[in-house]
């Protein structure tokens, strides 16, 4: 290797390592803050390594009543919601690529327009109640069955596939359903994987539907449960500050610091979904590059 190349490589590596550090550090900081003494964090003493290491925050969160059930609900809505979204969005994307479908442009526009115009909370609330989706698991998965964003991406990808592929299948006697699921969808795997990940993340993080319309504790999502826990910690901390709680019992109570609770909750919620990324990475890169390079 020439000296000039070596220097370039070194500078390049340094810059990107620094960039990687900037990306990773916030997550790392959240982790070390969640296992450090709350006061050390507040004093700014925790920067690179945990100070006063403890797992009390995690123990408290994992001991919450019904957390396993809530985890199951969040996991179920993520898996079922994403599967339903993929199934119906792929079908819709496919049919709107077909010129022979009457009113296809209108169907497509009606779908896309929902990306830009949102009726707001109250109409959504009224519709969900009218459909009797309140207090049911279906509230989590049915309203998101068609994702306009996914439809746009998948449709665009499908249009880039050679029509010869489909025509030859038709000649061989395949129907539309067979062509879609046996030929077109497998070719669209990168974009499908990308939208699947986006949807899974948003399903995993969702809690507002639960907050507004589901009061059944057996249908509580992990996110809402942790939100409630955070509220409790904050109200406790407020009460302590206002002298409504005996300070003797508050002093040294690591859990009372809402920042520690926030970091712990962030770790608990981010960790499971972050595992999805490495497995889907190669598809995601291809998927999000869609449309960015022509030819």
């Amino acid at each position: 290797m020439k000296k000039r190349d070596y220097t370039f490589q070194m500078i390049n590596a340094t810059i990107f390592l620094f960039f990687a550090f900037l990306c990773i550090y916030p997550f790392y900081y959240i982790f070390i803050a969640s296992v450090s003494d709350a006061q050390a964090v507040a004093m700014g003493e925790v920067l690179y390594f945990p100070v006063g290491f403890h797992l009390d925050n995690f123990k408290s969160v994992l001991k919450l009543d019904g957390i396993l059930m809530a985890f199951g609900i969040s996991a179920a809505r993520t898996i079922i919601g994403t599967a339903l979204m993929l199934f119906f969005s792929i079908m819709l994307a496919y049919v709107v690529t077909k010129n022979i479908l009457p009113g296809r442009k209108w169907i497509y526009r009606a779908t896309v327009i929902t990306l830009f115009f949102n009726a707001g909370l109250i109409p959504w609330f009224v519709i969900m109640k009218t459909l009797s989706l309140n207090n049911t698991f279906w509230l989590y998965v049915l309203p998101g069955m068609i994702s306009p964003f996914a439809v746009i991406l998948i449709k665009t990808y499908m249009e880039s596939i050679s029509t010869a592929l489909e025509e030859s299948a038709l000649v061989d006697g395949a129907g539309y359903f067979t062509i879609l699921w046996r030929i077109t969808a497998p070719v669209c795997l990168p974009v499908i994987a990308a939208v699947a990940v986006f949807n899974a993340v948003s399903q995993w993080n969702a809690w507002q539907d639960n907050f507004f319309l589901v009061s059944n504790p057996n249908l509580q999502t992990l996110q809402l449960m942790l939100y409630n826990y955070l509220q409790q910690a904050e109200s406790l901390a407020r009460a302590a500050m206002q002298g409504n709680i005996n300070l003797e019992n508050v002093a040294g109570n690591k859990q009372l610091d809402s920042f520690s609770i926030k970091t712990t909750i962030t770790m608990v919620t981010v960790f499971p979904i972050i595992l999805v990324y490495p497995f889907m990475q190669k598809f995601i890169v291809k998927g999000i590059m869609l449309g960015s390079v022509k030819g």
């Binding site: 302590a240 500050m241 300070l247």
Partner: peptide
């Protein structure tokens, strides 16, 4: 006054 209650918890800790 409400911001200062925590200062006493700091000393009590």
């Amino acid at each position: 006054n409400w911001v200062i209650g925590g200062s006493n918890s700091y000393l009590q800790s």
